[in-house]
Design a protein around this nucleic acid. Structure first.
Length: 302
DNA sequence: AATCGACCCTGCTCGC
DNA sequence: TGCGAGCAGGGTCGAT
């Protein structure tokens, strides 16, 4: 479920409610949640217990908590990826257990940080911090060191990223979703950025102008920024809830999920097409398909 | 080396 | 009402 704006909402919630707290107990029950940890859930429990959360950081869709003021290369952090359905919830002491809860950390103020994840694509790992491979000088959890800067970062350069994209030999949408090219963009905001740009996601990157690719990246940044503004308003003081994402920004979407509905620019029905085991939503008039591209099923009704 | 499809999960909605 | 098909905002991995 979460793309960059949703993850940022979660990060802010953690910053407000978890940073500064000491972890007094940890219980990791989800095997899949801990699948990236060589020692499994037990290792996560060991390495988190009695640590103090010193910061809540994010790059793209990757989220991590720094521990014990050790914000340096080699220091442990708790890397969290929400996957498709992960939630980081902060509950009061004694809150009832919920379905799909796979991990929780008891905090020294009596509250509980919970990881709830229906589809179990998300996970927790305790890993060392490392230098980002892109040379930005940013510290990242080692397994995420290969991730590119996201469009909200100071060091993000739309023009340089566009140049990189144009050198690649594949479809533009694939590259927008490639976290090593630009991070944070998922299926929704890729579709939205392409709609704003008037570009079909299956156009080959090399066939696009530098200007149009640069603008697409700027559109991606803008649409995620709009979503973040909307998401901030629905943020509850106590609960760090990713689910809010579906409720607030839906109304502002121009392409994603609008199969069969009129394009806001020209009125043509938005089309959904299979793409990378998912769906792409686009206006067939504003975003003309590349030639020889009759691959993939189309549907007008949802 | 780069590209691309298959795969990993659970649950909900929709049409028959 | 029951049931299967289709769909869901993530990343990783192996084959080519």
């Amino acid at each position: 479920m979460p793309e960059l704006p949703e993850v940022e909402v979660v990060r802010r919630g953690l910053e407000d409610h978890v940073v500064g707290r000491r972890i007094v107990g940890v219980d990791v029950t989800g095997v899949r949640t801990a699948r990236r940890q060589p020692g499994g859930g037990a290792e996560i429990e060991d390495r988190l217990t009695n640590r103090t959360v010193s910061g809540a950081r994010r790059r793209g869709k990757y989220l991590w908590l720094t521990l014990d003021d050790d914000d340096a290369v080699g220091a442990d952090c708790l890397l969290v990826h929400l996957g498709m359905s992960g939630q980081m919830l902060v509950t009061d002491e004694g809150a009832p257990p919920v379905r799909h809860m796979h991990a929780r950390a008891l905090l020294d103020d009596g509250r509980e940080l919970r990881f709830v994840d229906q589809r179990t694509f998300g996970g927790w790992t305790v890993v060392p911090l490392a230098d980002a491979l892109d040379g930005t000088g940013v510290l990242l959890p080692a397994p995420a060191a290969h991730i590119a800067a996201d469009p909200f970062e100071e060091g993000f350069d739309p023009l340089a990223t566009a140049r990189l994209i144009r050198r690649r030999d594949t479809e533009i949408k694939r590259l927008l979703l490639d976290q090593t090219v630009v991070s944070g963009i998922g299926n929704i905001y890729a579709d939205e950025a392409l709609w704003r740009s008037g570009i079909h996601g299956r156009r080959r990157a090399g066939a696009l102008t530098l200007r149009s690719v640069t603008q697409t990246l700027e559109h991606a940044r803008d649409v995620m920024s709009d979503a973040l503004v909307a998401g901030g308003t629905s943020f509850d003081a106590l609960y760090v809830n990713v689910n809010g994402a579906s409720g607030y920004f839906d109304r502002s979407l121009d392409a994603y999920g609008r199969t069969g509905l009129p394009c806001a620019r020209c009125g043509t029905a938005v089309v959904r097409e299979d793409f990378m085991n998912r769906g792409s939503h686009f206006c067939p008039v504003c975003q003309p398909a590349p030639r020889r591209s009759a691959v993939g099923r189309r549907s007008v009704a949802r």
